[in-house]
């Protein structure tokens, strides 16, 4: 005789387990942001200018070096940090000095920064210095634009052109 209690009990246990998996494998929906929210990503890499000038070594300095390393001109490798500011509707949202990477501070500076904003019209200002001695910001971009809901606006920098780009 078939033991119904046995089989129905098992079917019930299997169903519970599978229903759990079936449901939680893609539900409930996770509402990460309000649907009308847009996003700005500030993401760029740029090498700051080299700090300091090349100079000649003095005779005394040269004499101290091993013969195969006696090169008279020395150039520093350390780069300047970048100063990067982002203003939205004239409010300073981001302002940071970005140190160069590498143990000698001789590599690129980079930033990746994500910011949720309300969709609609915004005024965007972004500016950057790549040498600490610069008085003004040699790189600037100002734009007023319409952000649609969920739009992702990326602010990048084209080092070859020397200008900010919006993607």
């Amino acid at each position: 005789m078939i033991n119904w209690k046995f089989w129905i009990g098992q079917a019930l246990c299997y169903s519970l387990f599978l229903a759990f998996i079936g449901y939680f494998s893609n539900s409930p929906t996770y509402q990460r942001f309000p649907d009308n929210q847009a996003m700005i990503k500030l993401s760029l890499r740029h090498a700051g200018k080299i700090l300091g000038e090349c100079r000649e070594r003095s005779e005394a300095e040269l004499a101290q070096l091993p013969p195969n390393m006696r090169i008279s001109k020395i150039c520093p490798r350390e780069r300047s940090p970048l100063q990067l500011d982002l203003l939205i509707n004239d409010e300073m949202i981001y302002s940071k000095e970005l140190a160069p990477r590498g143990i000698h501070g001789d590599s690129l500076s980079s930033v990746y920064f994500r910011l949720p904003v309300n969709s609609g019209e915004i005024n965007l200002k972004v500016r950057m210095k790549d040498h600490i001695d610069q008085k003004n910001y040699p790189y600037q971009l100002e734009k007023t634009l319409q952000l649609s809901p969920a739009q992702v606006l990326v602010i990048d920098f084209d080092a070859n052109e020397g200008s900010f780009i919006l993607l």
Binding site: T29, Q37, V152
Partner: peptide, 23 residues
């Protein structure tokens, strides 16, 4: 589509249960 952010996500909660915490 990287130009449109995902606002509502059908997460696999079995594996991604900590992801909302990241936010």
């Amino acid at each position: 589509d990287m130009s449109v952010s995902v606002t509502a996500i059908d997460l696999d909660w079995v594996y991604m249960n900590v992801y909302p915490l990241l936010d």
